[in-house]
Amino acid sequence: MRSNNPVFNRNEEFNRSGAGYGQATYGDAAGYPGYAQGQPGYGDGQPAGFGAPPIQRTDRMTIDTVVQSTAITLGITILAAAATWFLTPSLENSAEAQDAVGQLTMLMLVGSGAAFLLSLVNSFKRVISPGLVIAFAVAEGVALGAISKFYDAIYGVDAEMGGIVMQAVIGTFAAFAGTLAAYKFFEIKVGQKFRTFVIAAMFGMVALSLMELVLSMFGGGLGLYDNNALGLVFAIAGLVLGVFMLILDFDFIEQGIANGLPARESWRASFGLLVSLVWIYTNLLRILAIFQQD
């Protein structure tokens, strides 16, 4: 069975017969000869099949490889965001504010545009490229740094709560930890209908966002990103969808490790996790902004 997720369905090993997405293939001899329990040559040093030695995969995807690749992509995103924040002029200084707005706007547009294009390339690329995933992390970090600085300047800093940006960061990692705990403790099983719904909803929200952007260029718009009731509903829906996307990411990692995917697929997993985390962060930032407005 093939995955409906465009981030994952380009991998042939993950979607081939006997190792399909959503199918339990622990110890599947057809998927990976030489690994099935009871098969001649499994760990006994004897020939397997027609006298051929057992196939040994030493570059398999593991929790460690996923953690390493995710730490790299997330770290690069944070560094790029911090560099954008600290290397651009201050919005609080009236003498520098005009230049700061121009620079941040340009970085936000360039970063988000590059991130969107790279996300499409990474989603539909059959063989995942670590370099393109890292490039996506850099572009995403630049865009997030610019957006975060705008929100911080507009909605100010709450000394007790640490500011809207810090609240959104803490909330994002709390959502990640809570979703992971629920996935493991409640043994959540991802079905085909759930995958279809999440992917369809994701593309639907992207399409609505692009339509809103185009309409805003002509002085119109649906108000999906305004600080009103409709904007709040849209942001909450986006936050919930981001959590659902995390569940798909966790399921991909679990199934990928079970199916013995190559280690390079850890970069696909880290890309998916980064997309979900950014999705959660931006929607949480908007929700906090709406609640903090006067």
Score class of each variant (00 low, 15 high):
148 S>D: 01
149 K>Q: 12
149 K>A: 08
150 F>M: 12
151 Y>D: 04
151 Y>W: 10
152 D>P: 05
155 Y>R: 05
159 A>C: 01
160 E>D: 13
161 M>E: 14
162 G>T: 02
162 G>Y: 05
163 G>W: 10
164 I>P: 03
169 V>H: 01
171 G>E: 04
172 T>G: 01
172 T>L: 01
173 F>E: 08
173 F>G: 06
174 A>W: 07
175 A>D: 08
175 A>C: 14
176 F>E: 04
179 T>G: 05
180 L>P: 05
181 A>Y: 13
181 A>N: 10
182 A>F: 14
182 A>W: 11
186 F>S: 12
187 E>F: 08
188 I>H: 10
190 V>M: 03
190 V>F: 06
190 V>T: 00
197 F>M: 14
199 I>Y: 00
201 A>V: 06
203 F>E: 07
203 F>D: 06
206 V>M: 14
208 L>D: 04
208 L>Y: 04
209 S>G: 11
211 M>L: 15
212 E>N: 08
214 V>A: 15
217 M>A: 15
218 F>D: 10
220 G>A: 13
220 G>N: 13
222 L>G: 10
225 Y>H: 12
228 N>M: 03
229 A>F: 15
229 A>V: 14
230 L>K: 10
233 V>I: 13
233 V>M: 12
233 V>S: 12
236 I>H: 02
236 I>R: 00
236 I>N: 02
237 A>P: 02
237 A>Q: 05
244 F>C: 05
244 F>H: 03
247 I>G: 02
249 D>T: 06
249 D>Y: 06
250 F>L: 01
251 D>E: 12
254 E>H: 13
254 E>R: 15
254 E>N: 14
